[in-house]
Write a protein that binds this DNA or RNA. Structure first.
Lengths: 276, 276
DNA sequence: CCGACCGGTCG
DNA sequence: ACGACCGGTCG
C-alpha cells in the first residue's frame, strides 16, 4: 500500500510505500495497537512488542524494520497521550525490541534447550554478568538479553540453565553501537557468544531525505564503520538485522564474522540456525 | 529571578529560580539570542555558543549549566523555526559547547602557548588522532577538541604546535559518557591528556521532577557510576564540570583523578590552572 | 552524503 | 531513585 505521513507545516505530507501490506492489514494493525498505547495497565514496551509480533505475523513478507519504523513508530507518535510521544518512544521502544525478540524466539528455541531473557534492570544485568564471571571487567549494564542453555556449566543455576552468551539489542545503531563493543569483546574473549541484533532502522525525513529506511550498514563495497565493526574487527560473534534492505555480509569476511539478514518471518531463520 | 516554563496541557507552567540573574539580564540575553536562532547565515552552533558566552559574561555568578539548560535551551525550543527544535538542539548544542569552550579559553591559554581546536569533521578528528599516533587504536572520531602546545614534539606541525591531548565535551552525560572511555584510556596510556569537560546538565521535568539541574555525578559518599569513572577507575585525566551543583572530588581519590567544578567566570579557573 | 549530537521518559 | 532507551538534524 501507499501510505501518507504528515510532517506538519511547512513540510506537508509525504508518501511511503509498504508493498507487502494492504490497507486492510494496516487498519487491522492500528485497531490492535492504538487501544494499547494509552491503556493505563499496559506498559508501552509490551504494547509495542505485541503490536510488532502481531504486524509481522499478519504481514510475514513485509520488511519488519519498515513495520516498526513506518507503521508502529508513526502510529505511536500520533496517539500517545499525556507525555512527550517522541521521548516516550525512545524510552519504551528499545525495551520493546528486546521483548519482541525474546517472545518470538523462545518458542522456537526451547526444544533446543535454549532460552532468551530480556534484562531490563541494572540488577538483572549485573547478576547475569556476575554469572558470566566478567562483572568486574565490563560496565555494569552492557548486556540486553541473556542467552541461556540447559546443562551449560558456566553460570549454572538450580533451574538447570547456564549462560552461553548475550545479545546487544538496538533498534537503530547511530554512534551508539560503539558503546557496546568493549563489553562485547570481553564476552567473546571469555568464550561467550556476543550477538548484535538490530532493526537497523534509519530513514532520512523530508525535506532532505526520501524516507526510505535503508539502515546504516552501507554495502560491502562501500563499507560503513558499523559494517567494519563486524566484518573486519569481528567485534561481535554475529549480527542479525531485521531490515531487509541491510546488505548481508559475504560468507567470507576478514574477521570471519558476518551480518545476517532475516528476510521473512519463517523459520528456521538465520538467528535460529546460528544458535541451534 | 523566578522564571516560568510552560510545559503545555495538561502539565501547565512551572517555576524555576535563577538567583543570580535579573529579569533585565534575562531580557538582554533573549534580545541577543533570538535574532540569531533563525538567521539564515548564522549556524545554530555559533548562535548558541555566542549566546552562552554572552550570558555568562553578563551573569558571571550564575550557574553556567543553568544558563545553558534553563535559559538558552528553552529560548531555543520556543523560537527555532522550520525544523524540529528538539532535534535541532541535539544536533547543534553539542557542537556549540565545543565552540564555547574553545572561544572562552583560547584568549586565556595563548600566553601559555596552548590552543584548543574544536574538531567537527570526521576528517579533522581522524587527522588529530593520526598526529597522536593512535588512529589505528581508537574509533575514528572519539575526540572533540584538540589541545595543542607550541614546541610540543608529538604531532608537531609546521606552525610549531604539537598535541598534548584532547577534550571529550558533553553537555550531559547519560549513558553516553561510557562511549568515550575506551579512547580516553588509550590517549592516557600513550601519554596524552584526556579531559572530560561537561555542563553536567540534568534536571527532571514535571510531573515527576522538580526541574532542579542537579547533574548526574551524585556525591562522593553516594557515588554514581559516572563519578566512579573518574575517582576510582581514573578513566580521564581530569573532569571539569560547569554545573555548580556538581559536587567536586576530594583532593585525594583512589585513582588520583578528580572532578573539578568551575564556580565562576573568573580566571584562573580550575581548567586554566590544570593546563597552565 | 552520512555521521554524532542530546534529553524526557518510566521502570 | 536514577539509569539507558533512540532519531531528526545539519555540517
Amino acid at each position: 500500500m501507499q501510505f501518507s505521513i504528515d510532517f506538519g507545516s511547512p513540510l506537508g505530507t509525504y508518501t511511503v510505500d509498504i508493498p507487502n501490506t494492504t490497507q486492510q492489514d494496516y487498519d487491522t494493525i492500528e485497531a490492535y495497537f492504538i487501544p494499547k498505547i494509552n491503556a493505563p495497565k499496559v506498559k508501552s514496551r509490551d504494547a509495542i512488542a505485541d503490536a510488532f509480533l502481531f504486524a509481522w505475523s499478519l504481514c510475514p513478507n513485509e520488511n519488519p524494520s519498515d513495520l516498526w519504523h513506518h507503521v508502529l513508530y508513526r502510529i505511536y507518535l500520533r496517539n500517545k497521550q499525556g507525555t512527550n510521544p517522541e521521548q516516550s518512544w525512545v524510552r519504551t521502544s528499545g525495551e520493546a525490541f528486546e521483548l519482541a525478540l525474546s517472545q518470538k524466539y523462545n518458542p522456537l528455541l526451547s526444544n533446543h534447550g535454549l532460552k532468551l531473557t530480556p534484562l531490563f534492570s541494572k540488577k538483572d544485568k549485573k547478576e547475569t554478568l556476575e554469572r558470566m564471571g566478567i562483572s568486574h571487567l565490563v560496565g555494569s549494564s552492557k548486556i540486553d538479553i541473556a542467552i541461556e542453555k540447559q546443562g551449560e556449566s558456566r553460570g549454572l543455576l538450580p533451574n538447570g540453565y547456564g549462560i552461553i552468551g548475550g545479545i546487544h539489542a538496538k533498534v537503530s545503531l547511530a554512534e551508539r553501537v560503539s558503546d557496546d563493543i568493549p563489553a562485547s569483546r570481553i564476552m567473546m574473549q571469555y568464550g561467550f557468544l556476543s550477538l548484535l541484533s538490530t532493526l537497523d532502522v534509519k530513514s532520512f525525513p523530508p525535506p532532505r531525505g526520501d524516507l526510505i529506511n535503508r539502515g546504516e550498514f552501507g554495502s560491502p563495497d562501500n563499507s560503513s564503520d558499523k559494517r567494519r565493526y563486524i566484518e573486519e574487527h569481528g567485534d561481535f560473534s554475529a549480527c542479525f538485522s531485521y531490515n531487509t534492505r541491510t546488505v548481508p555480509s559475504p560468507q567470507i569476511t576478514s574477521s570471519g564474522k558476518q551480518i545476517y539478514v532475516v528476510f521473512s518471518n519463517i523459520t528456521p531463520d538465520p538467528f535460529v540456525q546460528f544458535l541451534a
